[in-house]
């Protein structure tokens, strides 16, 4: 929406103040009101908006720039860009000004570099510790000393990355889905594991208990992170417990890791499947026939 342009006002004010008299379009003062003020004619305006006090215009420019002294300002009437010049600058000030700008620009990159560098060195350290855990402290150190340093600098940080990526492979769910789909079709296994029948006939897809994908929320992301980073320690522990006759530390850890993964997978599949069966067998009771004390039971059942 356009406001009424100043043409009418201009004509009217011109009646009051004749053309020869200067008057400021900001404070409306004339020469008579203030004979010492400095006048400028900063744009192509003529008539009542031709003259303005320099101080008044400076304030208007400040108001328009809102602190950004490099922003261009135009005359609100004729849209001419004001020509704003700064006094010549001393060499020292110039150097300081340039230094100030460079520092301002560069700091975010330095900060990002520090953060990324910290993460990188943490990953390298973690990789080295993991190798020492897996093959034994002395052997690990010897192994790393023999290796090419460049190989270590690239190889060590990939250890935690690989662990996290590996944790993202959700093989238990795939296996569970496969079992749900295929067990009812197999003639003998079908009778051994009858509960899988239920899943294939289910009409309530939400009851399948699909897990939230990783990184969908911060909590599940921390779960992936913790699970991935603690895995080598657990693998070493399992190796020592279950496979102590094996000589080589590396083999122990390897078998321990596989044993842990298998155990965890089986437990997870069992847990998921039982939860699903439980969901499937839930019932909604008739209100009238609700036995006394059922309130407590429903509460506990909603909290498996």
């Amino acid at each position: 929406m356009e406001g009424v342009e100043d043409s009418a006002g201009t004509a009217n004010l011109a009646d009051l103040h004749d053309e020869n008299k200067r008057y400021c379009w900001v404070c409306f003062a004339t020469d008579e009101d203030d004979c010492t003020a400095l006048w400028v004619q900063p744009c192509q305006c003529s008539g009542t908006t031709r003259w303005v006090h320099e101080t008044c215009l400076q304030r208007w420019v400040d108001e328009k720039q809102k602190g950004n002294s490099l922003e261009r300002v135009h005359c609100p009437q004729c849209n001419t860009q004001y020509i704003i010049v700064f006094p010549p600058i001393g060499k020292l000030i110039l150097v300081l000004d340039i230094a100030d700008r460079i520092i301002y620009r560069v700091c975010p990159f330095i900060a990002a570099g520090v953060v990324i560098g910290s993460i990188y060195w943490t990953a390298v350290t973690y990789g080295a510790l993991t190798i020492m855990q897996a093959v034994g402290a002395k052997e690990g150190l010897a192994l790393m000393e023999q290796s090419d340093p460049l190989f270590l600098l690239i190889g060590l940080p990939t250890v935690p990355v690989m662990l996290i990526l590996g944790r993202l492979v959700r093989w238990e769910e795939a296996l569970l889905g496969f079992l749900n789909k295929n067990i009812p079709r197999l003639p003998i296994v079908k009778d051994l594991l009858p509960t899988f029948q239920v899943a294939s006939n289910c009409v309530r897809p939400h009851a399948q208990g699909t897990e939230t994908p990783p990184f969908s929320d911060p909590v599940s992301a921390t779960r992936v992170l913790c699970g991935a980073l603690i895995f080598p320690t657990i693998a070493v522990l399992f190796g020592k417990l279950l496979f102590h006759p094996v000589r080589s530390n590396l083999q122990k850890t390897f078998f321990g890791g596989i044993a842990f993964l298998a155990l965890k997978g089986v437990l997870k599949i069992y847990y998921k499947h039982q939860i699903f069966i439980r969901q499937h067998h839930r019932r909604v009771l008739d209100f009238a026939k609700q036995p006394t004390g059922v309130k407590g039971r429903t509460n506990t059942s909603s909290n498996p």
Binding site: M1, G3, V4, D6, W25, V26, P76, Q77
Partner: peptide, 21 residues
């Protein structure tokens, strides 16, 4: 809702031009 009472305001406008707008 009128632009000259918001971002299109210019110091050269007056009570009179506002009322006419």
């Amino acid at each position: 809702c009128l632009d000259i009472l918001k971002h299109q305001w210019a110091a050269a406008m007056t009570l009179r031009t506002v009322l006419l707008s």
